[in-house]
């Protein structure tokens, strides 16, 4: 489902005299359906950079990044948008939403974008929120004022509301209590069981050991400075 070959990525900071920060060189990654791969490596080695490249959020300098059949290095913006709509899910560390939109609508939104009728979308969203133990009193409130762990659960629900064949997870258990952490690990196991390909960053070592089939050390792709 994911094929990354010879990908390099650097950042040029024009405002700072055009310094170039090389991050990745010759990065490779293969992830099959039903597999969960954890990205590891020291801080600053490029784990988030690689995840963002897989999401289409960063542009690779060279190489091929094939996700669910689309090469992100050459895809048009609209092709990437379409990929994200139905094939590529992403649980980010940050919640970015229009203020005032209630939590259950934030979660249902990806389904509405896919044309799922509002009532059905809302129902699936609420089922996930309840599974993630978000108090029902919060569902109709905007998550902008939620606690870190509550916001994270909204993000997770949004990422799992549609059965995306590829799912990227950036620290999905970071600010969760043990109970909810276990729910998230179950969701990941279920996604694997239905054949999703997952790539994640888990600083939580036990979580990683429990659900990752393999680890890929991103430091191996460190670009020479």
């Amino acid at each position: 489902m994911i094929h990354v070959r010879d990908v390099s990525k650097s950042f040029t900071l024009h405002a700072q005299g055009g310094i170039v920060i090389p991050v990745l060189e010759g990065a490779r990654l293969e992830v099959a359906a039903g597999e969960c791969v954890a990205l590891t490596g020291s801080s600053g080695s490029g784990k988030s950079t690689l995840l963002r490249l897989l999401q289409g959020n960063y542009a690779p300098a060279s190489g091929r990044i094939e996700v669910a059949g689309l090469d992100l290095a050459t895809a048009t913006p609209r092709e990437i948008a379409a990929l994200r709509r139905d094939r590529l899910g992403y649980v980010s560390q940050f919640l970015r939403v229009v203020p005032r939109v209630p939590a259950h609508d934030v979660v249902a939104d990806p389904l509405l974008q896919l044309g799922v009728p509002p009532a059905a979308a809302r129902e699936r969203a609420e089922a996930l929120l309840s599974r993630l133990n978000l108090p029902q009193a919060l569902w109709s409130l905007s998550p902008t004022t939620f606690s870190g762990g509550e916001q994270q659960r909204v993000n997770i629900a949004r990422g799992f509301v549609h059965p995306y064949p590829v799912l990227l997870l950036d620290e999905p258990t970071a600010s969760l209590d043990p109970l909810n952490r276990a729910v998230v690990l179950d969701l990941i196991r279920e996604a694997k069981a239905r054949g999703a390909a997952l790539v994640g960053i888990f600083h939580d070592r036990e979580a990683r050991d429990e659900i990752a089939d393999r680890e890929v050390d991103v430091s191996l792709f460190a670009a020479a400075p």
Partner: peptide
């Protein structure tokens, strides 16, 4: 380009 790419990885 894609909004989040232009904002997060501006060239």
């Amino acid at each position: 380009g894609l909004t989040d790419r232009v904002l997060d990885d501006p060239q």
